[in-house]
């Protein structure tokens, strides 16, 4: 376990050397990756979303990184791949799309049509892509970082609820402090530090980390607590669509991964509370009245955390 923590620490340090001042978010993104989930970054342009994804990919030797810029005319085949008739071999040959990779950056995912967005559904949920009836399994390390811009409405398609549920966490990088921004400028005076990034872990080591995260101990009492937190979203008046059991599952897995990153062998309630907002809030659909009254899902989840009795 100690060696795995050391590996995780190496990876985290490498990413943080490029993505400055975002330790907490980086850790949560890493935890999501180690827990086998996907991340939705909702943030303003230029806050380092792509840098984060790139740094992550570069830090892992042998990890492939692809990026898809989502646009309104993007088609499902542009993501999944397409079978093209090869006149020489008189057969259809499959050209895999960008989804067949280790780390996929889906930039501005809400600009593509819902149909295209949904093309990612199967890949994200089941780690496989079915094209023309053929099932193509995706690699063990398949990690999607999707981004969306929170302020633009024109020409965007809000993600379908099912798609939202597929993301393990939704978080925001946010702006960094002035001092950190100055550091970023300094680091990038000559060239972007992400280009100089050397791999610090192998792809197999990351897969081992993912296995180790699943071995982090999780007590029965905390399982009840996770269930209680998620169940508290159901039956609230302001919530139209509450969190699913997939949310409980995600909360358990990511807190295990977070414990691993913290170097702990078991999960404590603190860890669960640390990620609960990111795991649960984006899955909630509020009643229109609540939305217009200014209710915020993140605030609702924070309230739920404050009200649900925590094991002591």
């Amino acid at each position: 376990m100690m060696s795995e923590s050391a590996i995780a620490a190496r990876l985290e340090k490498s990413v943080c050397s490029v993505v400055r001042g975002q330790t907490e978010v980086v850790r949560k993104v890493l935890a999501a990756m180690l827990a086998g989930g996907h991340v939705l970054l909702e943030d303003y342009p230029g806050t380092g979303k792509t840098t984060l994804a790139k740094a992550l990919a570069r830090s892992i030797s042998g990890a492939e990184f692809k990026r898809v810029q989502f646009t309104p005319d993007l088609l499902p085949s542009d993501i999944l791949g397409v079978s093209v008739f090869d006149p020489r071999g008189q057969e259809f040959r499959f050209h895999p799309g960008p989804v067949f990779t280790d780390i996929l950056l889906a930039d501005e995912i809400n600009r593509a049509s819902p149909r295209t967005q949904s093309a990612l559904l199967e890949s994200m949920g089941e780690r496989q892509a079915t094209i023309d009836g053929d099932c193509h399994p995706l690699d063990g390390l398949f990690f999607v970082i999707a981004t969306q811009n929170p302020v633009e409405f024109r020409g965007t398609y809000p993600l379908p609820e099912a798609q939202m549920d597929r993301f393990m966490i939704q978080c925001a990088l946010g702006y960094v402090s002035a001092a950190e921004e100055a550091e970023i400028l300094e680091a990038q005076t000559e060239r972007h530090p992400v280009d100089m990034l050397e791999p610090v872990v192998t792809r197999d080591e990351v897969l081992a980390l993912m296995a180790a995260a699943r071995r982090v101990r999780f007590s029965a009492e905390l399982r009840d607590y996770v269930v209680a937190l998620v169940a508290a979203t159901r039956g609230r008046r302001e919530i139209q669509l509450a969190a699913s059991p997939r949310a409980s599952l995600a909360l358990m897995k990511i807190s295990q991964a977070l414990a691993l990153l913290d170097g702990a062998e078991f999960v404590t309630p603190d860890l669960i509370q640390r990620v609960a907002v990111e795991v649960i809030a984006h899955r909630l659909v509020l009643e229109p009245e609540a939305r217009f009254a200014g209710a915020d899902p993140r605030k609702i989840v924070r309230d739920i955390i404050a009200q649900t009795p925590v094991p002591v």
């Binding site: 404590t268 309630p269 603190d270 739920i304 955390i305 404050a306 009200q307 649900t308 925590v310 002591v312």
Partner: peptide
């Protein structure tokens, strides 16, 4: 201590 406040924190 609040209901939802972990003992350790």
């Amino acid at each position: 201590r609040g209901d939802g406040e972990p003992f350790a924190r």
